[in-house]
Each structure stands twice: as C-alpha cells, then as structure tokens.
Write a protein that binds this DNA or RNA. Structure first.
Length: 610
RNA sequence: GCGCCCGUAGCUCAACCGGAUAGAGCAUCCGCCUUCUAAGCGGACGGUUGCAGGUUCGAGUCCUGCCGGGCGCGCCA
C-alpha cells in the first residue's frame, strides 16, 4: 500500500511516458501552494528542454490524460507549466482508512534489508556526560531506531573509549592522590597476578567513584600538556597497562566498570540504549596480528621512525606548509599512523582493528559512524586504510558527522562559570521545570507519585531531544538553555501534549462506549491532517536516506499541528451526528498511533497524561 | 598555508535531485476557555537569503571571486 504521493507519481509517470517525455521527471511533490493544490508535478518544465517542446503544452497534454483519474478532484496547469493536483475527498478518506488499519501507520520497509552497525554516543572512561554528548547520543539513537524500523538488522555500539593514553594519565593521577591504592597497585604489579587471596584488598578500589575520576582527569590532562616528566610517566603507565601488568590492569578494570555502569544508567534515562558496549580494549588483542597482516600485504611503510599506511591515491596532493615555512606539494590525505615511533598503537590503529572486529563479529553491509564533524578527515583516512586492507568495501563505511553545540559567542558551549554543563544537571533542571508545570495543572494531586516523576522525566527528555533533533545534524547551532527547556511552541512537550489529548479523548470515548467507524473526510482541517499523515513514509525514507532525523522531527511536528487544528475546529465526541463522530474517532486513533510511533523513532516516549 | 562546514525575519532554526508568494517556533501586539487537557487555536507585525558577478525560462540551492564566522591538518582520543 503506497502513499498518495507515490501513487500519483506513478499515474503522472504513465501520462508522461504516453506523451513521450521521460517518466523519471514525473516526480510528484506536496504543493508549494496549498491554496491551489494538494500535490504538484514540475516534470513538464524539466522535460521541455529534453524533448524540445513547450512546457505548458506538455503539461496540458499530461493533464488531459490525468483528468479521468477518479482519485483527482482537479488537475490544473499553472504558471510556466506546473501541474496542480487536488485529491478527491473520497480518495483521501480511503487513504485515511488504510493508515488507520495499518499497525505501521502507513510506513513501508526497505526492499533489501541490510546489516548495519551504528557507532554513536562516544562515551569515555572517567568522563561524565556533558551537553556535548547530547547530540552524539540522540542523533545516533534516532538513526538506529529509524534504520531498524525500516527493516534493517541494526546493532548500536557505544564504542567505549577505555584504552589509550588517557588511561595512563588517570592511573598516575589516582596513584598520586590515593596512597592506599598506589600501594596495592605496586604490590600487585610486583606479584604479577591477582589471586583469590587479594579479593579483600581489592575492596579499596571500590571506593573509587566516577565523581572522583571525573575530578582527577581534567587537571591531569592539563598538567601533561606542560609537564614533560608527568607526560612521560603517563606514557610509560599506558604501555604497562597495555601489557596487562596486574596492578595497573586491576585498577583500570575499576575505571572501566564504574564508568560503564554509571553511563549505562545515564544513557538509559535519556532513552538511549546500546546493543554493544564494546570497548577499545576489546580489540587490543587484534592489533598485533593485524599489524603483521598489514605488513604482509605490503601496506606498512616506515616513516620517521613510525609505521604508516599511505592512503592517498595517484595524483592526490595538496600544498602543505612545513615547519620551516616552505610550502610543498604533499600527498593527501595524510597517511594512517599505525605504530608510533615508540611502538604503541594509535587512535586510528584501534579504529582500524575495530572495523576488522566488526567484520568478524557481524558481517556488516554498512557501518555508520555518528561522530562529531571535526573528525571527518580522520575517518576518511581510516576508511581508506580499511578498504586497502580488505576489511570493508567502498561505501560500506560512512561518517555521519554532526556540528557542535555552541554558546552565544559562537564557540563550543560553556556555562557562565566557564565550565561544562553536565548532562545530568541539564536533565534535572528541565525535569524540575516539568514538575512545576505539572503542579500548576494540579495534575500532581491526581496521579501517584511514581507516575508523576515518570511524566516529568518524559517531558524533560522530550524537550531536550526534540530541541536538538529539529536541527539538521550537520550544522552547528547555538545552545540556548531557555529554548531547550521550553515547553511551548515547536517543542517536544507540544508533541507529547497532542498525543496525550488524544489518549484522554479515547479514554472518554471508551467510557461513553462511543464506537469508531469509517473515516469520511469533510472539514478542511481533516483534509490537512490526512495529507500530513500520508507523508509519514516519505519523511521516514528521506530521513533514512539522508541520515537526518530532523526530517522525521519536522514531519512529526506537522502531524501534531494538524491534529491540534482538528481538535480546535472539529468537535469529536460532541460531533453533529454518529457517523461523523465515528469517523473522527478513527482519525484520532490513527493520528495517535503515528504520533507515538514517530516520537518513538526520535527516541521520545509518550506518557498517558500530562 | 591548505582543506571542510556555515552565513536565511530582532532571536533560534527549516526549506524534498534548481521551480510559483522563502516557511516554523520564540519575542511583540490583538482576539478565543459554562462543551473532548488553553503545554492549545486564530490573526497581525517581521526578509535585497553576507556582498559582487556568472550559468539557467527559473537560483537560498549550481559555478567563480570577495567579506565574516567555526573546525581540522601523524606520534592525544
């Protein structure tokens, strides 16, 4: 069952073909002029040049062929050759009934499902989430849901940053701060293993919380920039951890576990859940054999003491400025640094090994990296290396970049105090605002305390997520606290509110034993609502193809708005006659289903009341 | 220096392979609750799409050059 746009597209294509104009030009789109038509086709304009005919003449001939179509109330030609189509109310009613009867609310599935991994979220050990993580997790989560709903087999992977130089920094900082832990770690290092007898002593590690780690890491990272001795020590500790020295490894396990546990909880509160929590450490064992394999394939080249894979193709160069100021033509992209001059694996090495791991664990057709746009060059290099190594085919690895969240000064967002705003603080702030609003509605007295909290949480998450998702992912935007915690206008809570009003209405209808029946579209507001509902599949397909949840967000808002207008203009339970009431109840049910479904695909849960 | 992204209403953002009169929300102003949740609905105000050229029947969208902003450019991740 296809939507009106597709069905009309086929009819127009047939008419074009019959006129000898390429049918691929016969695209039907929602009308730019709702006052004149529901849909339009601009194909005659594009086709005129190709076939050497006047566009209006083509449009007239096509229109003539379309006039007999019972689904069309009118076919008109306007301007230089636009074909304007107005749908008959009966056809609109049919479509509404079809959407109402469909558990998927009119959405199709892909013809050929793919195996897809979506890498998103970007959590790291010892780092509490801040507002910057909002985009990374929200966009990826929505893409995961959209892809899965369209029929692909999808794995969401958090790709936990738990292995690397930052771990050495953290070990140094923790040992300097907590002598008892330092003593235990040295002891275990000396023994070379952790035995059953050490169980009790390990309890001291359990006192380390994410708060402690979060407080220790930033100053340590800062110190490493200027203090060469400290930096070298952290490097050494990193290497010793990576060789799995018992004490450091035990300490690191605590870092990993305490962080992962807290992050899983925080992500879940945001409606973000991963299928895989694979860490960078999980591919550590693959790196040695992988390097040997790359070497065997002749891909590794020695360069300034390091080992690299060149990924530039013939003739790909760019002017490059050297340290001494001279400019030379150098290959581009830069090579992938696989082994540093100190013999350690780098960021890109781990990423490459992760691709290999994913190939082995889940024979993917596609991996989507939902990561900050700033890493575009890095991924280009890694992807090319992966193709050269034979881990992926051209086009199977995609970087879906997103812009940064900036402050009003145009730079990455900072609080007034100059620090980062913790994601949990932002959520709690918004949740408190939701509680206040609920108390004003005096809903607080009517619902149990736990439901009250649940509603406040859902409203807060809806506000934050929708505020982000309505922006195209690729562009940076200015983070405005007021806008993110706003509940009126084009916001998440507005969308929830529309769905909740329908739920309330349907509860009442059930109590009055009011029956639903066939939809018969009559009022202008009803027409607009059905046209909005009809556009679901197109929005979904577009969001899928472009990996852009904002397209679905926009659609969802339109449906909510169209419903709100019906609500204001068309009495439902008090409708003039039983048939109208039955029709509107069906329309309400269909709208609710699509709204809840679309919101769910955006990662937003709908409460029963608010 | 080189590359990528961006510049649209007072503010924050949209705009479907180039199409008609560039759309929303917020803010401001004016209306609408004895009837299904007013977190709502209706209306008004608000634009030389950074600037200058070019391609086209037609450009916010494509090309060139400027201006302004953000980001990136092997031994951090």
């Amino acid at each position: 069952m296809s939507d009106l746009k597709t069905a009309l597209g086929e009819a127009v294509a047939a008419a074009f073909a019959a006129e000898g104009v390429p049918a691929d030009l016969a695209r039907v789109t929602p009308s730019d002029r709702p006052d004149l038509a529901d849909f339009q086709s601009n194909g005659a304009l594009a086709g005129a040049k190709r076939v050497g005919r006047n566009p209006r003449e083509i449009a007239a001939a096509v229109a003539e062929r379309l006039k007999g179509d019972p689904r069309l109330a009118s076919v008109e030609i306007a301007g230089p050759g636009f074909i304007n189509l107005k749908i008959a109310d009966a056809a609109l009613s049919d479509r509404a009934n079809a959407v109402a009867a469909d558990p998927r609310a009119g959405a199709e599935t892909v013809v050929r499902p793919r195996r897809v991994i979506i890498d998103y979220g970007g959590p790291n050990v010892a780092k509490e989430m801040h507002v910057g993580h909002l985009r990374a997790s929200i966009i990826g989560e929505s893409l995961k849901r959209i892809y899965r709903f369209r029929g692909d087999e999808v794995i969401g992977d958090a790709h936990f940053g738990d292995w690397g130089f930052q771990m050495g920094l953290l070990i140094a900082a923790v040992c300097d701060t907590y002598p008892a832990i330092a003593e235990l770690v040295e002891d275990l290092n000396a023994k070379g293993e952790v035995t059953e007898a050490d169980r009790g002593r390990l309890a001291v590690l359990a006192t380390l919380g994410l708060d402690d780690l979060g407080a220790l890491y930033p100053p340590a990272a800062e110190r490493a920039k200027s203090d060469v001795g400290f930096r070298n020590r952290a490097r050494r500790l990193t290497a010793e951890l990576q060789s799995k020295k018992a004490g450091y490894y035990a300490l690191w396990e605590r870092f990993r576990d305490v962080t992962r546990e807290a992050l899983i909880r925080d992500f879940h509160a945001l409606g973000v859940d991963f299928d895989w929590w694979k860490g960078e450490s999980d591919v550590e064992d693959l790196i040695g054999p992988m390097v040997a394999e790359l070497d065997g394939k002749g891909l590794l080249v020695d360069d300034q003491g390091a080992r690299i894979v060149r990924v530039d193709r013939d003739g790909e160069t760019r002017p490059k400025k050297l340290a001494d100021g001279t400019v030379i033509e150098a290959p581009w992209p830069d090579p992938l640094l696989v082994v540093s001059s100190e013999g350690s694996a780098m960021y890109g090495t781990t990423d490459l090994a992760t691709i290999l791991d994913r190939r082995q664990a889940f024979d993917f057709d596609l991996v989507i990296y939902c990561v900050d746009q700033r890493q575009a060059d890095h991924f280009e290099i890694v992807f090319r290396a992966a193709c050269l190594a034979g881990y992926a085919a051209e086009g199977q690895l995609i970087h879906v970049g997103f812009g940064t969240m900036n402050g009003t000064d145009g730079k990455p967002f900072k609080t007034r105090a100059g620090g980062v705003l913790k994601l949990n603080d932002l959520i709690e702030m918004t949740r408190e605002k939701a509680r206040e609003r609920l108390r004003e509605q005096s809903l607080g007295e009517d619902v149990p305390a736990d439901e009250f909290e649940e509603i406040a949480g859902k409203v807060a998450v809806a506000a934050l997520k929708f505020a982000d998702l309505q922006n195209f992912r690729g562009t940076s935007y200015i983070f405005d606290l007021d806008r993110f915690s706003s509940f009126e206008g084009k916001t998440g809570p507005y969308l929830l509110y529309q769905a909740v009003r329908v739920k309330s209405l349907l509860r009442r209808a059930a109590a009055e034993a009011a029956e639903a029946g066939p939809v018969v579209v009559a009022e202008p507001a009803e027409r607009d609502l059905v046209l909005a509902l009809d556009a679901f599949d197109a929005a979904l397909a577009d969001a899928y193809d472009k990996k852009a949840p904002n397209i679905l967000a926009e659609h969802t808002y339109r449906v909510a708005q169209a419903w709100s207008k019906v609500w204001a203009a068309c009495p439902i339970l008090q409708a003039a006659d039983p048939a109208t009431r039955a029709s509107r109840l069906t329309l309400a049910t269909a709208t609710l289903r699509q709204l809840e479904l679309a919101l769910d695909l955006l990662g937003i849960a709908t409460p029963d009341r608010m």
